[in-house]
Amino acid sequence: MTVRVMFVSPAMTADLRQARFGGRSPLDESGTRAATAAADAVPRADLVVRGSSSRCRQTADALGLRAEPVEQLADWHVGSWTGRTLDEVGEADPEGLALWLRDPSAAPHGGESLRQLSARVERWLAALPAGRVLAVVEPAVVRAATVVALGLASEAFWRLDVGPLTLTELSGRAGRWNLRCGRPLGGSRE
């Protein structure tokens, strides 16, 4: 029973441009325009889901998708850091930020640790039915899925970049996944 999971990262927002944790700003004009233009390139899927953020919802809508929100695919819960920029957190809590970046079990913000995020995403991957799944999710979820699916060390999470409106694909099944990553959402429909 093969599963093909196709992750689409959301389009651009002001919060993303500012490196703001858990931002809630809407898609900006360029993000909406890019997502709308990419709608014809979205691969077909048997199941279409999305993260719960407004950015995921707005991107799915602009892509013409009827995507159901899935709580397991929510953005990384970063507690007291939500809405703050990386620079603001670095100034206010440099020790906490340093701990968070080096220890995958740390959650100095009072939210989820990297290990907790990864475990949540891993449970979702393990429960998927056979077929093609399209998920519009935040970059942290794509990175966590990639790390757990490939059995990488947690530290690899910090080395993965997921740009706006890119497609990252995992195919296989629990315990044996292959990766096709980071191609721009474009080209012909599959």
Results as ranks from 00 to 15, higher is better:
Gly79Asp: 03
Gln58Pro: 01
Val89Gln: 09
Ala119Val: 08
Val136Trp: 13
Val70Leu: 12
Ala37Lys: 03
Gln58Glu: 11
Arg55Pro: 04
Arg50Ile: 00
Ser54Phe: 08
Val78Glu: 07
Glu91Ser: 12
Asp103Leu: 11
Asp46Val: 06
Leu73Cys: 06
Thr82Gln: 15
Ala127Pro: 08
Gly64Leu: 12
Ala41Trp: 10
Val142Arg: 03
Trp81Ile: 11
Ala127Phe: 03
Thr59Tyr: 01
Ala145Arg: 09
Val142Asn: 02
Val89Asn: 04
Ala135Gly: 03
Leu97Phe: 09
Val121Cys: 07
Gly131Phe: 13
Ala107His: 12
Gly83Asp: 04
Val133Cys: 15
Gly90Gln: 13
Pro129Glu: 15
Thr59Pro: 06
Val49Tyr: 11
Ala74Pro: 00
Ala38Val: 10
Ser53Gln: 07
Ser52Ile: 07
Ala140Thr: 14
Gln72Ser: 15
Ala135Ser: 03
Val133Lys: 10
Ser80Met: 14
Ala106Thr: 09
Asp103Ser: 13
Gly131Met: 14
Val70Ser: 07
Asp75Gly: 14
Pro108Gly: 10
Thr36Asp: 06
Ser54Met: 14
Ala126Arg: 15
Arg44Glu: 15
Arg115Ala: 08
Ala74Ser: 15
Arg120Leu: 01
Arg55Glu: 05
Cys56Arg: 06
Arg132Val: 11
Asp40Gly: 15
Val141Arg: 04
Arg55Ala: 10
Pro104Arg: 06
Asp46Gln: 04
Leu128Pro: 06
Gln116Met: 10
Leu101Cys: 11
Ala144Cys: 08
Ser52Asn: 07
Arg50Gln: 01
Val78Pro: 07
Gly96Phe: 05
Gly64Val: 12
Pro43Phe: 00
Gly64Met: 12
Gly83Glu: 03
Ala107Ser: 15
Glu88Pro: 00
Ala35Tyr: 08
Ala41Asp: 05
Leu73Lys: 10
Ala37Pro: 05
Ala140Pro: 07
Ser53Lys: 01
Asp61Ser: 08
Arg50Glu: 03
Trp124Ile: 08
Trp76Ala: 03
Leu134Arg: 04
Leu134Trp: 00
Leu65Arg: 02
Ala37Thr: 05
Arg123Ile: 06
Ala60His: 05
Ser105Gly: 14
His109Ile: 05
Pro43Thr: 06
Ala145Gly: 00
Asp93Ala: 04
Glu71Ala: 15
Val89Glu: 06
Trp76Glu: 09
Ala38Cys: 13
Glu112Pro: 07
Val142Cys: 02
Ala106Ser: 10
Gln58Met: 10
Val42Cys: 10
Gly79Ile: 07
Gly64Gln: 10
Thr85Glu: 01
Leu134Met: 07
Arg55Cys: 05
Val78Trp: 01
Val89Arg: 13
Ala92Val: 02
Ala119Thr: 12
Thr85Trp: 00
Gly51His: 01
Ala45Leu: 02
Glu138Asp: 15
Val121Gln: 05
